[in-house]
């Protein structure tokens, strides 16, 4: 993002921007349709399917960051990128750690575990 000039760019820049949006759009459509078809037609086993569609989602995230949000065109220092990575990392921690922690909590605090502790001497 060249922040200085928001309204008056030359012809080559204009062409580049237009190409960027069109490429991004086409790629995103593909990255949306492929996982959709994979899920609708059950083309893979469930666990693999989950992993694959997540990968497609992250790839589309990268595509949109690059082609719609022009994150590579940022001039140094790449503050937008750094801040994005910081928050992306935070969100990963929030989601992944929550799932990990809650899985353990749910199991340990469940009736199944209660039964295991009481009758089979299993620890936490």
């Amino acid at each position: 993002m060249n922040n200085e000039n928001l309204t008056n760019i030359n012809k080559t820049e204009s062409k580049k921007i237009l190409q960027s949006y069109i490429t991004g759009f086409i790629l995103s459509i593909i990255l949306t349709l492929v996982p959709y078809i994979l899920v609708m037609d059950h083309l893979l086993t469930p666990l693999v399917l989950v992993g694959v569609i997540l990968v497609f989602a992250f790839v589309q995230l990268a595509v949109q960051l690059l082609f719609f949000l022009h994150i590579r065109q940022e001039s140094k220092p790449r503050l937008n990128l750094v801040i994005f990575l910081l928050f992306f990392g935070t969100i990963l921690v929030v989601v992944v750690a929550s799932v990990w922690i809650m899985q353990h909590l749910n199991y340990n605090m469940s009736l199944v575990q209660f039964n295991n502790v009481m009758n089979y001497g299993e620890g936490f």
Binding site: N8, S14, Y21, F25, T32, Y36, M40
Partner: peptide, 27 residues
């Protein structure tokens, strides 16, 4: 799922047209 796909394509297209709007702004 087909309904959700429709919503998704509509929103994606709108993101594209928003990009075109900015292209027009830059010009």
């Amino acid at each position: 799922l087909p309904f959700a796909l429709t919503e998704t394509i509509i929103l994606l297209t709108s993101s594209f047209t928003a990009g075109l709007a900015i292209w027009a702004l830059r010009n």
